[in-house]
């Protein structure tokens, strides 16, 4: 009986399609950040010396890498409507674990793998406490932020770990952080890999779809039979593994780690994801956005340095950028709702 009604949802050909395409482009959350990044690059190229040299650009990429790897994990957590403040502590804990294993002359791939397992377990702890006890993840991970770092300090008795050249096959491990296949920093490659795999998971898998659904409305997801607990815990585990990977790569880069390594990283990680357009309360965000957010922060720092701005000002500018980008997004969204 409804067959007589033309399907209204398929837009008629002609100008409307163009308009809806323009609409869709404008609606892309990433657009604003991409524009900002482009402007910044234009300024870098014409306003400073040395920005456009390939060495410098690769440096920017490398600086972005560790934050980027962790931000991929944070994208899952934030889209699922949670937050993980403990990433910096997972980072240092895994760094220490891997460092000790290497000092004990464990083969580096095994040490790396065990490190990732430790990271995953940290995430599991965060997820299980949050979901199992029904606590806000902000509180739980604020606690584990302290606990995980404490464990790292206990393990090493607060002594820094320095990996020297006498450890067999240490060059293999050091390649993770310092290698340059085809002239591209290995760190950057690892980050792009994380972004690609993360983006794939988010966009094309059932788990990804459920992550958006749970973050958008946990109650609606529950009433649609989605295993909300599993999705939430899983997002923490992914974050833990990736924070661990970043920790291992960081260790590989410097071959040195100490108790204060990775303090405050959580702020940069969350900042990158939020600048990338994810909603702090879950339900939206993309991996592309996160990548652009990470690059924006790294580029901003780089350009400010090249322009000779003092590092104190850099801190201020980054703070302003966070607020401005979220404010812009909020204003745009408010308008869209009406």
């Amino acid at each position: 009986m409804q067959t007589a009604v033309p399907p209204v949802s398929t837009p008629p050909a002609g100008p409307r399609t163009t308009r809806s395409m323009v609409d869709r482009v404008i609606r892309q959350r990433e657009l604003g950040v991409i524009l900002a990044l482009a402007l910044l690059c234009v300024y870098g190229i014409f306003g400073t010396d040395g920005f456009r040299s390939s060495d410098n650009l690769l440096n920017v990429g490398q600086q972005a890498s560790l934050i980027g790897i962790m931000a991929v994990g944070a994208t899952f957590v934030i889209i699922a409507g949670e937050i993980d403040l403990s990433v910096g502590s997972i980072y240092v804990l895994v760094s220490m674990c891997v460092g000790m294993l290497l000092q004990a002359e464990v083969a580096w791939p095994v040490a790396l793998l065990l490190g990732l397992v430790v990271g995953g377990l940290c995430g599991l702890v965060n997820g299980v406490i949050t979901v199992g006890l029904g606590l806000p993840s902000f509180i739980v991970t604020l606690g584990t932020l302290s606990v995980f770092r404490g464990i790292a300090l206990l393990m090493t008795n607060a002594a820094p770990i320095s990996l020297d050249q006498t450890i067999p096959n240490i060059e293999g491990f050091a390649y993770l952080g310092n290698g340059r296949p085809f002239g591209i920093p290995m760190q950057l490659i690892l980050m792009l890999l994380a972004v690609l795999v993360g983006g794939f998971l988010l966009r094309f898998t059932k788990f990804g779809f459920h992550t958006y659904a749970v973050g958008g409305s946990r109650e609606a997801a529950r009433l649609c039979g989605i295993a909300t607990a599993r999705v939430r815990v899983m997002s923490f585990v992914i974050q833990g593994v990736l924070a661990g990977l970043a920790g291992a790569v960081g260790l590989s880069f410097l071959l040195y780690v100490q108790g204060t390594t990775g303090v405050g990283l959580e702020l940069l990680v969350i900042t990158a994801v939020i600048i990338g357009g994810a909603a702090l309360f879950g339900g939206s965000g993309t991996m592309l956005g996160t990548l652009v957010g990470v690059l924006l922060i790294a580029t901003l720092q780089n350009v400010l340095i090249l322009a000779g701005v003092s590092s104190f000002w850099q801190t201020i500018v980054i703070g302003v950028v966070i607020i401005a980008s979220v404010a812009l997004d909020t204003v745009v969204r408010r308008r869209r709702r009406v």
Binding site: Y212, A213, G215, G216, S217, E219, A220, A221, L223, G283
Partner: peptide, 15 residues
């Protein structure tokens, strides 16, 4: 099951 509170129990506002 179609719940009563459409906005909070049934819709995924971001999808």
């Amino acid at each position: 099951y179609v719940p009563a509170e459409r906005r909070s129990q049934a819709l995924f506002p971001d999808l």
